[in-house]
């Protein structure tokens, strides 16, 4: 029952810049920690300490230089570093949610569809489930105070805060066992910050294992169950 959802062991990351004379840029060294279901670990450290890199490594957007990252997919631990792309795609679809500060917008896709997409993909041909997905997306957008007149508009023209909320809605529409949050409240006003804080806590209480970067001390104190000090990592 009490297997860790995320287990990181001896993780190091060095970028090799081949076009700059093979310069080596070490961003993480020997990181080890575990996150259990129902925990929220805040990464603590100055800018440049490798916090975002660590999240990207867990998400498999970056490749580890050494060490191991294992994610519990419900039936066993999957080693991210050696998993086939197809396995990683399945992990991202079903297990790992990742919310970054920035929304990567797709031209012409309405905000509502951007948010509903993770559920629509799961719905396949079922019209009922697709309709249900759109209703859930509306609910999330409403909760995050995106005015209904914007729901059918592509978010490319939205303000930074609005885009971030669309991104959060998309990241939270499917329950994920692992959540990676990179400054989810960076450009939000007070009301929305409180809403997002509540959403993070709800996900954690439902059993999500969360790793996050929370610059805002109030948010960090409200959501984190403990802190990982990045100075251990370099």
């Amino acid at each position: 029952m009490h297997r860790p959802a995320i287990r990181v062991e001896g993780l190091s990351k060095t970028f090799t810049l081949h076009n700059q004379g093979g310069a080596q840029l070490q961003v993480l060294r020997n990181v080890s920690f575990e996150v259990h279901p129902g925990e929220c670990v805040a990464l603590d450290g100055a800018s440049g300490a490798g916090k975002s890199s660590l999240l990207k490594l867990i998400h498999a957007s970056y490749l580890a230089s050494a060490g191991s990252i294992r994610i519990d997919d419900g039936s066993g631990a999957v080693e991210v570093g050696t998993a086939a792309p197809r396995e990683l795609m399945r992990l991202r679809r079903d297990v790992i949610g990742y919310v970054s500060q920035f929304l990567r917008t797709v031209p012409r896709v309405a905000a509502l569809d951007v948010v509903a997409e993770p559920l629509i993909e799961e719905a396949g041909d079922s019209l009922d489930r697709a309709r249900d997905a759109l209703q859930q997306a509306e609910g999330l957008l409403r909760r995050l105070r995106i005015p209904a007149r914007l729901w059918q508009v592509p978010p490319a023209t939205f303000s930074g805060g609005e885009q971030q909320r669309v991104n959060i809605a998309r990241g939270f529409i499917r329950r994920k066992a692992v959540l990676l949050l990179d400054e989810p409240t960076a450009s939000l006003d007070a009301d929305n910050r409180i809403t997002v804080t509540a959403m993070i806590n709800e996900a954690r209480q439902e059993g999500a294992a969360i790793v996050g970067i929370f610059h805002d001390v109030r948010v960090r104190e409200a959501v984190a169950t403990r802190t990982y000090d990045m100075r251990q990592a370099l």
């Binding site: 090799t16 810049l17 081949h18 498999a60 957007s61 970056y62 490749l63 792309p85 990683l88």
Partner: peptide, 15 residues
Amino acid sequence: LTDQVLDDPQHPYTQ
């Protein structure tokens, strides 16, 4: 994976 190759390219040519 697309984001992995674009965000953390390994080969000099991809970089």
